[in-house]
Amino acid sequence: MVKKVFRVSDMSCPNCAMHLEGLEDELPGVKRINASYKKLTMEVEFDEALLSVEQIIEAANAIGYHPEPDAN
């Protein structure tokens, strides 16, 4: 399991964080997603053998958000 933090600049309300957290029920290999509207971040804990960063970004794109891996 690894943890990756993404910056999601297009979150516009607390509802967005809940939408993004809902991806944890959709994506195989995701253990947990914690999204924060205040910080505009999404932390994903997932199994790299089952899921890639690109797939996470694609899934978020599909529901209208554009996360970028956090450089920090």
């Binding site: 516009s12 309300c13 607390p14 964080a17 809940m18 957290e21 809902g22 944890e24 029920d25 914690n34 999204a35 924060s36 509207y37 205040k38 505009l40």
Partner: peptide, 25 residues
């Protein structure tokens, strides 16, 4: 809501993730 400044995002009281996760499931 008018996006005047990012600092106003701190006026939101977000429910804890475990709660939204529980309700969602």
């Amino acid at each position: 809501m008018l996006n005047v400044h990012p600092v106003f995002r701190y006026f939101v009281i977000e429910p804890p993730s475990f709660l939204t996760r529980y309700i969602r499931r």
